[in-house]
Computed example of a mutant assay.
Amino acid sequence: MTGEGLRPRDAESAAQLVALGMRPKQLPSRDSLYTDLVIRYRDDDGFKDLVHSVAAGLGLIVLAVTEQSGAVLAATEDSVFEIKMDEYARRTALQNRQADKVLHGLAQLAVAALSFPRPDDLGNDAYVGRVSVELVDGAVREACRVLEERTEGSEEADPLSDAPELERVWRMYLRRPAAAATKDGRAASDTTRGIAARALRFLAEQGFLVAVGGDSGVYRTTPRYQVQVRELAAQRTFDELLELGVLPATSAEASLHVAAAETLA
């Protein structure tokens, strides 16, 4: 189809598709209208262009539209829909936003890397990754330990002078206890496992992960998350962390793709 002769009602349909994409847990498999709109997007170039125009007017970029993932969108810089780390901190009720938000950013990076441990996994639309609280916390702690050993073994006074934010992050993470219990027996939220758990829950709320095994702390990836990890730009602040070999750097081009330094969506 060429999409010639689009009518005003077509703009409404395009906006509907964008709106459905902004509902994190809505999937075409559960909604016949959603399925019809996805098929039209695939087959009608004129309608596809209209969807992209509607999204652009809202400060959004269409990353993918498939029957598996639905419409996957990303916010442009300064879009009203952009979720920055400060907003993430507010949503997750961090007790110390300035200190904790950067640790949560590190946890988000680890989740993305560990969910797709090989380049082929990220390029395979049928691949489903699994990640857990313990896996995320363990991987980040190991990365921090490697960085600490590198610093102690260096003859330079400040071997990470080119990456001061990274140095601050790993020192902060290592100082936090991995686990602790509150007075009522619940896991303390300001521990590193608590940080990993909150990062995973947030991604599940956004439709990127799905909890499996009840309260086991294990999650599986969704096609929506795979698209996000594949498409979004790598966070340059943590390039050196990825080079340590503790967290795998994964994508079709062998480089991890996550949200920008201060942006989650």
Rank of each mutant, 00 (worst) to 15 (best):
L50I: 10
D78G: 07
L264S: 12
A180M: 08
V102E: 10
S79M: 11
P117S: 05
T222Y: 11
D78P: 07
G46Q: 06
E142R: 12
G129H: 06
A252D: 14
R90D: 15
P119I: 01
R30P: 01
S53T: 13
D190Q: 10
E165S: 10
S115F: 09
G185M: 07
H257F: 03
C144T: 05
E142G: 12
L106W: 05
D120K: 10
V111L: 07
E205H: 06
K183A: 14
Q206D: 13
R30K: 15
E253M: 10
S132T: 11
L73F: 09
D184E: 15
A14G: 11
P117G: 01
A163D: 12
A89C: 01
A139N: 09
A265Q: 07
K48I: 04
V111M: 13
Q235R: 15
R145Y: 07
V136W: 06
F238L: 08
A157W: 01
L114G: 08
A233M: 11
T191K: 04
G70K: 04
A197H: 10
S13V: 10
L58I: 04
H52Y: 06
D215Y: 09
L135M: 14
A259Q: 08
D137M: 05
V54L: 04
D215S: 12
A74F: 13
C144D: 01
K48P: 00
R7I: 14
A157D: 14
A178F: 02
A196W: 04
D44K: 02
S154Y: 01
A89K: 00
A89H: 00
G129M: 11
R30H: 15
E152P: 00
A19Y: 11
L160Q: 05
H52A: 14
Y41M: 00
M172L: 13
H52S: 14
E87F: 04
M22T: 01
A107R: 01
L122E: 08
A19C: 03
A249L: 00
V218T: 14
F208W: 12
D36C: 06
Y34V: 02
H104Q: 01
C144A: 15
E167W: 06
A55M: 11
Q95T: 12
Q98P: 03
A261G: 02
R23E: 13
S115I: 06
A71Y: 03
R176W: 00
R201G: 10
D121M: 06
T237N: 07
